[in-house]
Computed example of a mutant assay.
Amino acid sequence: MDYIRETRRFTTEKLAEIRDDIHRVLKKSKNNEKITIVATGSYGREEASSKSDIDHFIIYDADEAADDAIKVELEQIEAVIKQHVPERSGSTGTFGKDAVIQFSEMKTNIGGEYDDNKSLTRRMLFLLEGTWLYGEDRFERYQRSLLKRYMENSSEKAELPRFLLNDVIRYYRTIATDFEHKVFEDGKEWGLRSIKLRFSRKILYFGGILTIAEMADAGYRQWEERAIELFGIPVLSRIERLIDDRCGQEVLEIYDQFLAKISDPEIREALKRVEKEERTQSEEYQTLRQLSDDFSAKLSECLDIKYSADHSIHHALLF
């Protein structure tokens, strides 16, 4: 699994450099104890490369407007990130230098009228694949607090945290629906986005399901600690730890093939050019499309092998 090892090495080294430089520029700020920087995406999954962008957002816990109170700090943060990661993230406003929120926004209105795609995406990725760029202690405290929100109304008799599971399912289904909107109404590229949906988004979802199944096995009183432990491990390492048999190995081998192919500049560019109507004419797309079917089948097989037929996760995923 050469590409998993290589992207893991690259991500670890690059994150260390970014963290050091952000700490250096913010250490004299009077507001630095109010700032937490969260990274998600390929950097959160430990599968970044020199061609990756970095999805990030900032939690600023203060009453005053960030644009006024920490304008200089925001510019410093952006300069550090741009220096280390030249690729720009998407233009939806969910991530990037203008994505500044208060932590309270992540905990309130879950599933409510104002829980739009941006808030759902930030909240779910914060849990499922998030890591810190600045403010490690606050990041961990916020993660624990958000998990408590998902579990606080559960009965001690509950087999697993359904509020959390339902939001993980909702997020994954929302990604798939949102994909159709972005490519058909916003004119976004189709081929590469489609392949990423079939692999990186799918493995993220699977990692969330594994975590919740393990919470069920740990029991109600240990839900929080088991979730903190597992969400603190990047998803590929989480799968490696929890499914340490042939099936888990095969999942990672397939994912390694995916990483290898999208890391190839020629294949990546070919995928970017693929339109849905022409997908059957693209050898690059069709190869990865078939591989994604194998990937789905293997993930399903692993879930069935790992957890017996009467395990609560199977019923909860359906009803």
Rank of each mutant, 00 (worst) to 15 (best):
M1I: 01
M1N: 07
D2L: 08
Y3G: 00
I4V: 12
R8D: 14
R8V: 02
T11G: 10
T12E: 15
A16I: 04
K27V: 12
K27T: 13
K28R: 14
N31P: 00
N32I: 15
N32F: 12
K51F: 14
S52R: 02
F57L: 01
I59P: 05
A62E: 12
A62D: 13
A66F: 08
A69I: 04
I70A: 09
K71H: 14
K71P: 00
V72I: 10
L74W: 01
A79P: 05
A79S: 15
A79T: 14
V80H: 05
I81N: 09
K82E: 15
Q83T: 13
H84E: 12
P86R: 12
T92C: 00
T92Q: 12
F95W: 06
G96W: 02
G96K: 02
D98Q: 09
A99Y: 06
I101D: 04
Q102V: 07
Q102M: 12
F103A: 07
M106E: 08
M106T: 02
E113V: 11
D115I: 10
N117F: 13
L120P: 07
R123H: 03
F126I: 02
L128K: 03
E129R: 03
Y134L: 15
E136V: 11
D137M: 11
R138K: 15
Y142A: 01
Q143V: 00
S145L: 09
L146I: 11
L147H: 08
Y150H: 07
N153C: 05
N153K: 13
F163H: 10
L164S: 03
L165W: 05
I169F: 06
Y171R: 00
I175D: 10
A176Y: 09
T177R: 15
V183K: 10
E185Q: 11
E189F: 08
E189C: 03
L192S: 11
R198P: 00
F199A: 01
I203T: 07
Y205R: 04
I212Q: 10
E214W: 01
E214H: 06
G219K: 08
G219F: 13
Y220T: 05
E224D: 07
E224W: 00
E225A: 13
F231R: 10
F231Y: 15
F231K: 09
L236Y: 05
R241K: 15
R241L: 12
I243F: 06
D244Q: 12
R246C: 02
C247D: 05
Q249F: 01
E250S: 05
E250I: 05
V251E: 13
V251H: 05
L252D: 02
I254S: 02
Y255L: 03
D264C: 04
E266Q: 13
E269H: 04
A270F: 06
L271S: 01
K272M: 11
E278R: 13
T280M: 15
T280A: 04
Q281S: 11
T287K: 11
T287H: 07
S292W: 08
S292Q: 06
S296T: 11
S296K: 09
A297K: 14
E301T: 09
D304T: 11
D304I: 03
I305S: 02
Y307P: 08
S308P: 02
A316S: 14
L317N: 04
